[in-house]
């Protein structure tokens, strides 16, 4: 299965720090691709490359088979790649109907906002995804974390996203709220969107993912199809496997050193 969005051998360095090395990723439409990794694994660099904030130093970025070089998130969006960033309250003091269309306003001649149509469109789009907000005049900051993610997902789909990149969409949420967001991820997938779900939580990934890629120290260390994997494997891999053993040894070693000092 060849992906709609494809990274081939992508690498990125900052000065003498190698943030990503030889990362390949296939994201087909209508599926959820999970990228799992601990802090510092290179997740944020990967997101920024996918979303067009950074350009890769090595390797190729292809959309629908064509190699591209994105210069901004806006350009990525124009090509159907939308990113919902981890920052949960991008515009806390804006009413939903304004924030939803920020940067893509419906305007008449002379830059006049078509306020009524914007409100109607937001209401209709949220309703079609089963998102209940009380009032589109409500400020974004008054929404719960899950609602904000849901609105952001609805927004991306409204603006024609083919690929939706979600940066830790569940990490700041409670169990119930996270469940709500996971449902919207599945809804987006069913509507034919390719979802990249970036997370450090294997339990959430396993619930919705079709393929799983593990990122560690800037490299992809493993990839699984859903069929060939059980949750326990994923949890073990995420917990560090071999690394955990090394850590255990190190900590014991430190204890010994301290023992000698005394």
């Amino acid at each position: 299965m060849s992906g709609y969005l494809e990274l081939a051998g992508v690498g990125k360095t900052f000065g003498n720090v190698i943030a990503l090395r030889d990362v390949s990723l296939d994201v087909p439409l209508g599926s959820v691709t999970c990228v799992l990794g601990d802090n510092g694994a290179g997740k944020s660099t990967l997101i920024k490359i996918l979303s067009g904030v950074y350009q890769p130093d090595e390797g190729a970025y292809r959309i629908d088979g064509t190699e591209v070089r994105l210069s901004s998130p806006r350009e990525a969006m124009d090509r159907g790649i939308a990113t919902v960033f981890q920052d949960l309250a991008p515009q806390p003091l804006m009413p939903i109907w304004r924030a939803f269309f920020l940067g893509n306003e419906i305007a008449r001649a002379g830059g006049r906002l078509d306020i009524r149509r914007q409100k109607q469109e937001v209401t209709a789009q949220l309703a079609s995804m089963g998102i209940n907000v009380r009032d589109v005049d409500q400020l974004v900051g008054t929404l719960s974390g899950g609602e904000r993610q849901a609105v952001a997902i609805a927004r991306a789909i409204y603006f024609g996203a083919r690929i939706l990149i979600l940066d830790e969409p569940t990490s700041a949420l409670g169990v119930k709220q996270a469940g709500v967001v996971l449902r919207y991820i599945t809804a987006a997938k069913r509507s034919g969107v390719g979802v990249v779900f970036i997370t450090h939580n294997p339990h959430h990934a396993y619930l919705v993912g079709d393929t799983f890629s593990l990122l560690n120290r800037g490299r992809l260390i493993a990839s699984y199809e859903r069929d060939s994997l059980v949750l326990d494997d994923l949890v073990r891999e995420m917990a560090g496997g071999a690394e955990l053993e090394t850590l255990t040894h190190e900590l014991r070693g430190m204890d010994d050193v301290r023992g000698m000092d005394e």
Binding site: S72, R74, G111, L113
Partner: peptide, 21 residues
């Protein structure tokens, strides 16, 4: 005006607004 929306957005979250175009 659309401009007003941009004014709110720029002050609300500079990088966020820039990322949205």
């Amino acid at each position: 005006l659309r401009f007003g929306n941009w004014v709110y957005g720029t002050g609300g979250n500079l990088d966020g607004a820039r990322n949205l175009g």
